[in-house]
Design a protein around this nucleic acid. Structure first.
Lengths: 190, 190
DNA sequence: TAAAAAACTTGAACTGCTTCAAGAAATTTA
DNA sequence: TAAATTTCTTGAAGCAGTTCAAGTTTTTTA
């Protein structure tokens, strides 16, 4: 469904019919099965992914061999490793589907040509990435100031439906505490 | 020195003489004394700041009354609260000069007019904010995977000169540990 | 340059959360 | 639907880093 992307773009800029045409003719939807990766550590990230359906996560494997989720993405979110994408350096991250999902994958080269054909898209990506960075700043604030239990309660209040959607151990690592501690928080044994 | 900003912009896009003219005629340098704030918690952030000289930090005051630095900025960095700036909501942060500094302050309204006069700037801000977000992703990775001492050693190796430039207690909070623990790390008493 | 303020140090007591290990429950696969 | 796999739970032991309090050193201000 391109419409998910088109309407997201048109929240921020307005597109002419010919621009919509360019986008629709160049883009394709890819289905990604649960647990499938679109990026692995060590690879150079050449693609930005727009999620039209489902859920993804960006994670790392720490030195104890445990996965730690750094970021989730759901419908209408972009997910990529921006550092690897821009600098063409090997990625530190894995990006994986948490559910059976559908994405629009845009290669770096194709994105550059799109940005030349539709310069307005620069504005779209500028606004989206500034907002995303703003959210990352708040995330760091919460990590710094709240206890594990406060982070869980705060997140659950803001995203009650999302908490049901992903395994607890993934959410625990995203909130920066252990899966076991998550269990104890939920059981009220803290 | 507008040249700091102009040459930063021209790392990413090339400007025509008339565009340089527009920028130079509209921008002004402001001196900010050490410890002076350009943003306080609760204010709506209407300005983006480009640092031409000196050093700033973004911080919060936690519920114990301690300042915690979330972000530093030095020459050629932009600093602002993007969330407050975009949504016109009260800021959660303080932004303060760590040294006597000089900035180019761009108001939201003026920025919008600049972006209309020089649409190429959308591209500049798009690239800068994507890179900044990429750096934030790495920061979260380091916070998640390294011990306090590892974070200190890693940061010191990457930024040996910067470590000399700011008080240790600010750097400690940026790396998410206490000022006392910083002292012990440095003394090798850990 | 003396006084005040800011920044740094140290050790002792404490604690929020992790780690480990093992079993139970839920979900997926064949 | 049985087996395999994944996810969740529980308690006990441990520890990385905090908190507190007091003193010392460095920097700033008047």
């Amino acid at each position: 469904m391109y419409s998910v992307l088109l309407s997201h773009i048109q929240k921020f800029i307005s597109l002419e019919p010919f621009e919509i045409e360019i986008l629709e003719s160049g883009l394709g939807i890819t289905k990604i099965k649960k647990k499938q990766h679109v990026l692995q550590e060590g690879q150079i990230c050449n693609t930005m992914y727009f999620i039209t359906k489902g859920c993804f996560r960006q994670y790392i494997i720490n030195n104890k061999g445990t996965e730690q989720t750094l970021q989730f993405g759901v419908e209408s979110w972009w997910i990529t490793d921006y550092l690897s994408f821009h600098n063409q350096t090997p990625s530190h991250f894995y990006i994986q589907a948490v559910e059976n999902s559908e994405i629009i994958a845009i290669e770096k080269l194709f994105l550059e040509s799109l940005l030349i054909q539709i310069p307005k898209l620069e504005r779209y990506f500028r606004i989206v990435s500034q907002k995303t960075f703003g959210a990352a700043q708040m995330r760091i604030k919460f990590l710094f100031t709240m206890s594990a239990e406060e982070r869980y309660r705060h997140f659950s209040n803001l995203n009650p439906e999302f908490v049901q959607r992903v395994p607890q151990y993934m959410l625990a690592s995203y909130l920066d505490f252990s899966a076991e501690f998550m269990s104890k928080i939920r059981a009220g044994k803290v």
